[in-house]
Design a binder for these strands. Structure first.
Length: 240
DNA sequence: AACTAACACAACCGCCTTGCT
DNA sequence: CAGCAAGGCGGTTGTGTTAGT
């Protein structure tokens, strides 16, 4: 029994993508944008599952991806965000422009876990390890995402001014591929159009005390919205 | 030089959520 | 409101690369 597979595996390629497949996917998205992933492979002439195409595009082919090593500041931001959010990789990725959830997840598992363990900090709870060794893996719950009310309260005490009911990235919708390509093509254009957002945008970097970091771009470019989260509006408030 | 272990990261799997009918 | 399809997400696995012996 079980659910039906997302695509017909017998007639799809699997494993590593070839250059030709990448080119087909890029060309198709450049021409048509990200549309229906399920029908995209056929339309683009790819023998791939739609999910696979989506993943390849998002994690590897998107032109706005920042590749290369994570900076020390990105490390610290990831650690702080993970402390607040737990394994919400997509939300964390939303605060790191050019980084993907998969990339951050991998980086966490391979580098940051060790780094924290070296500091004597449990990577899951972000608390100092007492006595026994930290138990990497799934022994403990993420601190806040699935936390009990008491745990949530403790979290609030640690970060009293931070609203943990984060409506992350609601208004930070990634630019559409055509916007990205257009921005890449435009050599002298101003900042790309930003989507309208509610009045209470708050720079998460500033909230986390990373104002001086290069990842925080809110000062030199106030219109830069990528690192912001949005406090839910108070009752009776309206966005416009 | 050959082998093995550790590491890094791309890709897959399956569940959950969301939107549509 | 239930059922379904599609998208999205987090966990896990597979594979190539590098370092150590």
């Amino acid at each position: 029994m079980g659910r039906s597979p997302c695509c017909e595996k017998a007639h799809t390629n699997r494993g590593a993508w070839t250059k030709e497949e990448d080119q087909l996917l890029i060309a198709y998205i450049k021409a048509h944008g990200e549309g229906c992933w399920r029908s995209l492979p056929k339309a683009a002439g790819l023998l791939r599952c739609g999910k696979s195409c989506r993943l390849r595009w998002i994690n590897y082919l998107r032109p706005d991806l920042k590749r290369g090593n994570f900076t020390e500041e990105e490390d610290e931001l990831i650690i702080k965000l993970h402390g607040l959010l737990g394994n919400k990789w997509s939300v964390i990725a939303g605060q790191l422009p050019g980084r993907t959830d998969n990339e951050i997840k991998n980086y966490w598992n391979t580098h940051i876990k060790r780094k924290l363990a070296g500091r004597g900090i449990d990577p899951q709870t972000h608390l100092p390890v007492r006595g026994g060794a930290a138990t990497p893996g799934k022994a403990s719950k993420p601190p806040s995402s699935a936390a009990s009310p008491a745990e949530r309260e403790r979290e609030r005490e640690r970060c009293p001014d931070l609203n943990l009911d984060l409506s992350m990235s609601l208004s930070f919708s990634s630019p559409t591929p055509s916007e990205v390509f257009a921005a890449a093509d435009a050599t002298s254009g101003p900042t790309p159009a930003v989507p309208p957002r509610p009045a209470h945008a708050i720079c998460l970097c500033c909230h986390l005390g990373l104002q001086s970091s290069e990842t925080c771009g809110c000062r030199e470019n106030p219109s830069h919205h990528a690192l912001r989260y949005y406090k839910p509006l108070e009752q009776g408030q309206h966005t416009h």
